[in-house]
Nucleic acid binder design. Structure first.
Lengths: 112, 112
DNA sequence: TCATTATATAAGTATATGCTTATATGTCAA
DNA sequence: TTGACATATAAGCATATACTTATATAATGA
């Protein structure tokens, strides 16, 4: 396993050490999502979510892909820290249920 | 594996998401240490180290044991978050070398 | 073209964080 | 008992963080 320098690891843990961002990353571990889905699921303001997503984007933890008026985010599995992130996600409950609820409410964004 | 609620995990990651505290925990993963060893190894003031150690103690991540004038800290392997912490430590380089250097300099604290 | 929707960004603000300096507490040894 | 050492804690301060509100940008569809 590739070791991560202690300073870089601290940076990543700090990034994940926030309930909102950890939830976002955990949701993205299930499937790609757009900002409005985060706003719905986390019950937070759109700018607040956007600012959290930006921090993840700045560190290349997530990637974005525009589809029409929506921007979908995904976990970047190519990122050097992805294995570390995956090992954290393994230890928290799956967010699958929340995404299924979103779909039941007809609030899943579909645009393919 | 026991799952950790997302909110608690965020709290732990935040605690570890600091270079000083992550280094302290990594050092304690090698052997028990006293505060003055952290001061020496991390080149930081004694109060600053004490304050970081306190945060780890408050969350029961480390335990203390007085030996004469020194207080030795250890990783608390009974703590519910120890497995999560161990999995993080596995992914960063061992701090063994730094502890060996300390011993070469005759600065290891021995009191048994 | 214009209103609507999705998202990003900027500016402001309250609180959290991590240091500093000063001081208190506890142990040892002369 | 007193001085030295190890550690903890308190208070103060500068910077970081995570919101808020307001506004900008971009795409859609009537």
């Amino acid at each position: 396993m590739e070791k991560i320098p202690i300073e870089k690891m601290a940076t990543i843990l700090k990034l994940l050490g926030d309930k909102t961002r950890l939830t976002i990353v955990s949701l993205l571990n299930e499937r790609e999502c757009c900002v409005c889905e985060f706003v719905e699921l986390l019950d937070m303001s759109q700018p607040s979510i956007s600012q959290h997503v930006r921090k993840l984007r700045d560190k290349n933890i997530v990637t974005e892909k525009r589809k029409g008026q929506w921007i979908f985010y995904s976990l970047n599995k190519e990122n050097e820290f992805y294995p570390a992130i995956a090992s954290v996600l393994q230890q928290i409950p799956s967010q699958e249920e929340k995404l299924l609820q979103l779909e039941k409410l007809g609030k899943k964004i579909i645009c393919d």
